[in-house]
Design a protein around this nucleic acid. Sequence first.
DNA 1: GATGAATGAGTGTTCATTCAT
DNA 2: CATGAATGAACACTCATTCAT
Lengths: 197, 197, 197, 197
Amino acid sequence: MFVYFRNMRIKDEIKQDALFEATVKLVNEIGFASSSVSKIAKQAGISPATIYVYFKNKEDLLVSTYIEIKKNIGRAIHEDFDDSLPIRDILKNVWIKMFDYIARYPNYFQYTEQFSNSPYQSLVDKQEIERYFDPVITVLYRGIEQRIIKNVDFHILTAFMFYPIMALSNARVCMDFELNDENIEAAFTLAWDAIKL
Amino acid sequence: MFVYFRNMRIKDEIKQDALFEATVKLVNEIGFASSSVSKIAKQAGISPATIYVYFKNKEDLLVSTYIEIKKNIGRAIHEDFDDSLPIRDILKNVWIKMFDYIARYPNYFQYTEQFSNSPYQSLVDKQEIERYFDPVITVLYRGIEQRIIKNVDFHILTAFMFYPIMALSNARVCMDFELNDENIEAAFTLAWDAIKL
Amino acid sequence: MFVYFRNMRIKDEIKQDALFEATVKLVNEIGFASSSVSKIAKQAGISPATIYVYFKNKEDLLVSTYIEIKKNIGRAIHEDFDDSLPIRDILKNVWIKMFDYIARYPNYFQYTEQFSNSPYQSLVDKQEIERYFDPVITVLYRGIEQRIIKNVDFHILTAFMFYPIMALSNARVCMDFELNDENIEAAFTLAWDAIKL
Amino acid sequence: MFVYFRNMRIKDEIKQDALFEATVKLVNEIGFASSSVSKIAKQAGISPATIYVYFKNKEDLLVSTYIEIKKNIGRAIHEDFDDSLPIRDILKNVWIKMFDYIARYPNYFQYTEQFSNSPYQSLVDKQEIERYFDPVITVLYRGIEQRIIKNVDFHILTAFMFYPIMALSNARVCMDFELNDENIEAAFTLAWDAIKL
DNA sequence: GATGAATGAGTGTTCATTCAT
DNA sequence: CATGAATGAACACTCATTCAT
C-alpha cells in the first residue's frame, strides 16, 4: 500500500513536470491562443482528461505555470544577493542575473512575456508575485531614503529599471540585437543614469 | 448619379468606421484571443459576412486597424513638430504629445499594446510603421552625432526613451498610478537622464 | 434606339459567351462543388449579380451550359452523316467523330462527364438531350431490324457502343492511356464485336 | 475489466457502423456536394464533433467509406472463385456476382459510383484498390496469353468488360431498365463477344 | 441591363470540458 | 489516478441570392 502511494507520488511529479515543460514549450512555439488543452496534453504525453486531475481548468494550468516561473526568476536574481554592497552594485548584479536567466531559460522568460499580455494576466494575484521580488524592491526604497535614487513614484522607477530589460530581450528575440556583455553593461548605465539622483 | 455616389461613400465609411471602433472596443474589453469575427460584427451592428466585404480576413481586419492607429499616433506626436528646437525640447514635446494621445484615445493606444503582443504582430511590415516615426527617430540620431545623446545601440536608446511610456500607461490602466503633468515631467527627466551624454 | 438595342444584344452575347467559357473552365479546374457563383462571375469578368440577369439561378446556369455542350456534341458526331453507308461504317464514323470532339474540346467533354455525376444531372430533360442523338440511335434500331445488330434491350447496346468511350477518355485524362488512331480503331472493333449479330 | 473492454468496443463499432451507413445513405440521397459533415452526423445520430474522433477530417471519412466498400465488392465478386474453370466461365461468374452485389447493396455500389466522379476520387491510392481485384485481372491477362482474349491495351479490355456494368446499373437506377437474369446473361454475351478473340 | 454591397444560412473544424469506466 | 470517447458551443469563413441604385 505504501509502495503504491510512493509510486503514485513519483508519477505525479513526473507528469506535473512534463505538463509544465509542455505548456511552456507549446506556448513559445505556437503562441497562447493556439495552445489548446489537448495539444498541451499530447505534448506532455498524457490524456487531456488527466490535466483536470492536476489543475482545475486550463486557466489554472496557465496561471500556475506563470507563477512557477516568476518564482524561479525571483530566486535567480536574488542568488548571492549581498545587501551590504553599494546600491548601484546590488542593482547591477540583479540586472546581470536577470539577463543571465533570460539567456539560460529563454523559453521560461518568453512564456512570462506572452502571459503578461494574455487575458489570463488579470487572474494573477499580483501581490503574490511581488513577494518574490521583495529584496530588490526594498533596495530601491532604501536608495530613495539615502538620497541616492530619485524620489519619484515607484512605477516610474521600475519603468526605467526593469521594463527596458523586457524591451531589450524582445529586440533580441527579433534577432537584430545581440545581448552581449558590452550591450548589457551599456544598458545598465542608462538605467542607473535614469534613476540615480 | 452624384448623389448616389455620395451615398455609397458615406454608407461605406460609416460601416468601416463602425468596424474600426467595434474592433478596438472589443479587443480592449475582452482581449485579442476572445475577439471573434462574429462578436466584432455584432458590436459593429453588421453581419459577420459583411466584414469580408471590407477585409480579406480576420487577420487583415486586425492588422489594418493596428496600422491605422499607428499612423494616427505618428501624426499626433509630430504635430507642431519644430526641428529647430534643442533636442531635449523636441523629445519632451514628443513625450508630452504621446501622453496626450494616450489620455485622449486610451482605447486606441491599448489596442496597439495588445496587438504588439499578439500572434498577429509578426504579420506587420515593420518598415511601414517606422516610417510614421521617422522625424523623431532622426532627432535621436542627430543627438548622437552632436554628442548630446549616448552613442549606444539604437535599441537601447528606444528601450529607455519610448518603452517606459508603455510601462507607465499600463500602470495607469491598472489604476494605481496617475498620469498627471507632474508625473509625466518627472518621468521624462528620467528618460532624458538615461540617454543624454 | 435601334442601335442601342443592337449594342445591348451584342453585349448580351459577349457576356453570355464569357459566362459559358468561364463556367466550363472553372468546373474543369476546381470541380463542380467548388465552383461558386462568384468565382464563375469573376472568371467571366462580370458581377455575380449579373449572372442572375441571364440565368434564373446557379442551377439554371449549370444545366444550360450542359445542354449547350450536348447540343454541340450531337452536331459534331453527325457532321457529314451519310445514312446510305453500311451500318458498321456509319457507327465507326460516329465513333471517330466522337473521339475527334473529345480531342478538340476536352474541356467541354469533361464538363459533361462531371455534370453527369453531379446532383444537377437529374434536373435535365433527358428527352431533349436524346433528340440531339436521334440519327445515330435510329441507325442502331435499323441494324436490329436488319438482323445485323443483336436484338437486346437498347440500354445494353448503348452500354457497349457509347459508354466505353467515356471510360477510355477518362483513362486518357489519367494519363496512362494514349488515344491514338490505333487504339481508337482497336476499341471500335471491340464495340462492334459486342453488338453485331 | 473484460466487460468494460467489450462495452467500449461494441459502442465504438456501433457508432462507426452508424457513421458508415449514414454516409452512404446521405450521399445517395442528396449527393456528394450537399452531404455536409453536420448532416452526416445528424443522420448517424451523433454530434458533428464525434466524427473527428473516428476520422481525421471529412475527406478521411469519405475516402475510408469508399475503400471499405471497394474491399467488400472485391471480396464479393471473388467468392467461390474457381481458377480452374474456363476463362469465359470465370468471367461470367464474376459478372453475375457483381450484379448480385449491386442488387443486394445498391446503396454501397451507388456510393462508389458517385465517389469515382467526386473531387475526392484523386485522393485514393489506386494501387490499394486494384489489389482487391487482382484475381480477376490476372485471369484477363491469362486469357490474352492463351490467345482467348484480344491482345489490346488493358484499358480497352476493362472498358468493355467492367464499365458497361456501371452503365447498366445506372440505367436500372433510372428505373427504365430491369436487371433480371435474362438481361444480365444477354449483356455478358456482348461483353464476352467484345473481348474474345 | 448591370452591379457593389449586404446577408442569413451554412461550411468544415477545433475547443475546453465532462464522464463512464 | 488515469483516460478515451463524447459533445455543445464556438470558430473563421463561404455560399447563393437579393436589392437599392
